[in-house]
């Protein structure tokens, strides 16, 4: 939009809230169900989490098998 003031506002965090809301609203309209638990995929895990000990897992050694 064109400038409406001489003073800058804060912009670094500005987009998050309305975009989050828009996505939630779009989801509700697409599915007919208003989402009430966020994030929408929270209940779905598609992987086995790493064990909690050791607290930092060992690095893989198969890096040369995944070159492109």
């Amino acid at each position: 939009m064109p400038n409406t003031s001489e003073s800058p506002s804060g912009a670094g965090e500005l987009a998050v809230a309305p975009a989050f809301a828009a996505i939630a609203c779009a989801y509700a309209r697409a599915t007919g169900t208003m989402p009430t638990y966020f994030p929408i995929n929270h209940g779905k895990l598609s992987f086995e989490p790493l064990p909690v000990q050791p607290s930092t897992p060992q690095s893989p050694t198969d890096g040369l098998d995944h070159t492109f």
């Binding site: 690095s59 893989p60 198969d62 890096g63 995944h66 070159t67």
Partner: peptide
């Protein structure tokens, strides 16, 4: 952990992750 790919470099012209070699 070969997930974030921040370390991506090339070996013999191909991309790889040195964190996992």
């Amino acid at each position: 952990l070969e997930v974030c790919k921040s370390c991506t470099s090339h070996i013999n012209g191909k991309a790889f992750n040195p964190c996992s070699v």
